[in-house]
C-alpha cells in the first residue's frame, strides 16, 4: 500500500473583515480550512497580533512595564506612537481601564479625547476596549465611534447586554467594526451574531470575541468552543458563525498566579516578567491554533514571538 492523504474540504468560509485604513489596514479571516491547514485549502489572511496599551500609566501593570515605556511618560498617545514605531504591531488595542465606574470612573469625554489623540498619532489600526462595565462601555463606544468616524476602528466589544447601542452606533451610524462578545459558548456566540445581524449590522462589520482563559484556568473550554465554532462555520456552512475571531489574550494571561506571583511569593519560580511572557505566548499560540484570527498581547516580547510564530506556521 502507499500513503493516501486524508484531505478535508469544507463548503464554508470565514468572512473577511477589514480594520483600519490606508496601507496599514488589516484584513482578518478568509480561511476555508482549520487554522494553518494550508495543505487543505485556503488558509486565509495571516492571523494578526496586536499590542495592548491603556488610558492609564503602564505602572498600573507593574514597575517593569513602566520602565519599558518610560520614554512615553504618562501620555497614552506617546505610548501608542512608541509601540508602533518600536515594535511594529499589526494593530494597537487601547483599553479604557480608567473608565470603570468602580475604579477611577473617568468621564466619557475624557476618554474620547484620549482615543482621538491616540488615533491621530498612529497609522496602524486601532482596537478600542472598554472597562467591562456594560452601561459605561455602551456610552463610551458610542462616543468614541462618533469621534473617530472614518478611522474604521474595531470596538471590543458588544455584549448581549449592550449590543443594541454599540452595534447601532458603532457599525450602523458611524461605520466602525464591532466585536460580538460571548462567554465561551458556541450557542451564545451564534445568538449574538444573529441579533447583531437582525439589527442590520453587516457580516463584513462583525468580528467575534468568544472569550478566553489563561492556560491552566479552564482553557479547554476556550479551545473546544473555537473547535466547534470553526467546524460549524466551515463544515456546516453556518453563516451565523463565519465571523473571524479576535481574542484578548493579555486580559486573562496577566491576571493569574503564574504571572502575578512575585519572586518573594514563589522563590522557586524565577523571574516574574519572564513567567508572564511565557504564560502569554502559550495562551496566544493555543488560541491561534484553535481558531483566533487576531490576538491581543501585552508584552513586546510576546508580540515579537507571536509574529514569528504566525510567519513560520504560514
Amino acid at each position: 500500500m502507499a500513503y493516501k492523504k486524508t484531505a478535508k474540504k469544507y463548503s464554508g468560509k470565514i468572512s473577511q473583515v477589514t480594520v483600519g485604513t490606508g496601507e496599514k489596514a488589516i484584513t482578518l479571516g478568509g480561511k476555508n480550512v482549520l487554522p494553518f491547514y494550508k495543505f487543505d485549502g485556503e488558509a486565509g489572511n495571516k492571523p494578526k497580533v496586536g499590542i495592548e496599551i491603556m488610558d492609564e500609566s503602564p505602572s498600573e501593570w507593574s514597575g517593569e512595564f513602566a520602565e519599558l515605556y518610560s520614554e512615553a511618560g504618562n501620555d497614552t498617545a506617546a505610548w501608542a506612537k512608541l509601540v508602533e514605531e518600536k515594535y511594529a504591531p499589526d494593530f494597537i488595542c487601547l483599553r479604557f481601564e480608567g473608565a470603570d465606574p468602580n475604579g477611577k470612573n473617568k468621564s466619557v469625554e475624557e476618554c474620547v479625547e484620549v482615543a482621538k489623540k491616540v488615533a491621530d498619532s498612529i497609522t496602524v489600526p486601532l482596537v478600542v476596549a472598554g472597562s467591562k462595565n456594560n452601561d459605561k462601555d455602551a456610552e463610551l463606544f458610542k462616543n468614541v465611534a462618533e469621534a473617530l468616524q472614518g478611522k474604521n476602528i474595531l470596538l471590543l466589544a458588544a455584549k448581549e447586554e449592550n449590543y443594541k447601542t454599540v452595534g447601532a452606533a458603532g457599525a450602523l451610524a458611524y461605520g466602525q467594526k464591532v466585536a460580538a462578545e460571548s462567554s465561551v459558548d458556541i450557542n451564545l456566540a451564534k445568538q449574538l451574531n444573529i441579533l447583531m445581524s437582525q439589527l442590520g449590522v453587516k457580516k463584513e462589520d462583525i468580528v467575534m470575541n468568544v472569550g478566553c482563559a489563561a492556560v491552566g484556568y479552564g482553557y479547554e473550554y476556550v479551545s473546544s468552543t473555537m473547535d466547534r465554532i470553526l467546524l460549524a462555520a466551515l463544515g456546516q456552512n453556518d453563516e451565523s458563525l463565519q465571523m473571524p475571531i479576535i481574542t484578548a489574550v493579555s486580559f486573562d494571561s496577566w491576571s493569574v498566579k503564574e504571572s502575578l506571583a512575585t519572586e518573594a511569593d514563589e522563590p522557586q519560580w524565577g523571574n516574574q516578567m519572564e513567567r508572564g511572557i511565557h504564560m502569554e505566548v502559550s495562551t496566544a499560540a493555543a488560541c491561534l491554533v484553535s481558531g483566533s484570527d487576531a490576538v491581543v498581547v501585552r508584552h513586546p516580547k510576546s508580540l515579537e514571538t507571536m509574529k514569528k510564530f504566525v510567519n513560520s506556521m504560514m
Binding site: G216, Y219, E220, E258, W269, R275, M279, V281, S282, T283
Partner: peptide, 12 residues
C-alpha cells in the same frame, strides 16, 4: 517559566 503554562495547558 516554560513548565507552568505548558503543563497547565496540557492538563486542561
Amino acid at each position: 517559566q516554560t513548565a507552568l503554562p505548558l503543563f497547565g495547558l496540557r492538563q486542561n
